[in-house]
Write a protein that binds this DNA or RNA. Structure first.
Length: 282
DNA sequence: AGCCAGGCCCATT
DNA sequence: AATGGGCATGGC
């Protein structure tokens, strides 16, 4: 993959490891969609991009903030090398072939924490609805819609607000976590620690954050790749496709990390996307 | 209609 | 440390 950063767009060439549909529907983010002209749109933080296909393996990312999206789409990482390493595992090849256009997004930390607290025991369409509602209710107006709210804006939200937005029993968790993020040095400590396990323990102290959600935050918000979030889908992959006998999800995650090391986070995302390939999210 | 969803909290053992 | 019941709410 090659890319050129311009004033109001990024042009992507040889994009075998950049496929908008794969990236956006792989369950990492919840504010995206398909326009009538076939372009994909994505919003995160206070930014928006539209991705238009120019030709085979050739895209243009239209945005007023190209620098942000170079980082967001993880363009500094060489995915060919990751695919080559993981491809040595024979059983991964169908998933890698199907999902080679997936990338691991480098997302704003607070947004990831809120999104994945909402994700627990929930379905993706409903998560999208709640997250979108939170932006519309508490985020700043933008040229195209609404930004994801800042921590200060989020601190205005009550438990009733989150209930009204369809967050269900997670509403009190959100209020409690938002209050703590504003009053303690949690975000700073998360960013400063060298230890993934230390960061995990900090996250587990948050209400609504268990082992799986913590690993998603580590992966999508803190760019730690020695993690393997195990949800209901990965659980099926483990037992049905890998023939695993363990039932404890923390132990399943540890088993995967033993296999795939620092490629675990990428591997998990390819497997998750492949397992859900028959479920449409447009 | 009933099961399931990118699980977690909390009480009990 | 491990287990299990309860849980808001909408998608399918």
């Amino acid at each position: 993959m090659k890319y050129v950063v311009n004033n109001d767009n990024i042009e992507v060439f040889d994009a075998s490891t950049f496929e908008p549909e794969s990236i956006l529907t792989s369950g990492q983010l919840f504010r995206f969609g398909l326009l009538e002209n076939g372009d994909w749109w994505v919003e995160t933080g206070e930014n928006r991009a539209e991705i238009t296909k120019i030709g085979d393996n050739h895209y243009k990312i239209l945005t007023s903030n190209p620098k942000f999206f170079v980082n967001y789409f993880d363009f500094l990482t060489n995915y060919d090398i990751i695919l080559e390493r993981l491809g040595k595992f024979e059983m991964l090849r169908p998933a890698l072939d199907y999902g080679k256009g997936v990338r691991l997004l480098r997302q704003p930390l607070v947004e990831v924490i809120i999104n994945f607290i909402i994700s627990a025991n929930n379905n993706i369409p409903r998560i999208r609805k709640s997250v979108t509602g939170i932006c519309e209710r508490f985020g700043s107006k933008t040229d195209w819609g609404f930004a994801f709210p800042t921590l200060e804006q989020l601190s205005q939200a009550t438990e009733q607000d989150f209930t009204d937005l369809g967050c269900g029993y997670r509403a009190p968790y959100l209020v409690d976590t938002i209050k703590r993020l504003g009053s303690e040095k949690i975000l700073e400590n998360l960013r400063n620690t060298d230890s993934t396990e230390n960061a995990r323990q900090i996250l587990l102290s948050l209400k609504g954050v268990g082992p799986k959600v913590a690993d998603c935050i580590l992966l999508f918000g803190l760019n730690r790749y020695d993690v393997f979030p195990v949800d209901t889908w990965i659980n099926k992959v483990y037992t049905n496709d890998f023939g695993g006998m363990e039932t404890n999800r923390k132990k399943i995650a540890q088993w995967f990390v033993e296999q795939f090391g620092l490629d675990s986070g990428y591997c998990q995302q390819y497997l998750f996307y492949y397992k859900r390939k028959d479920i449409t999210l447009k």
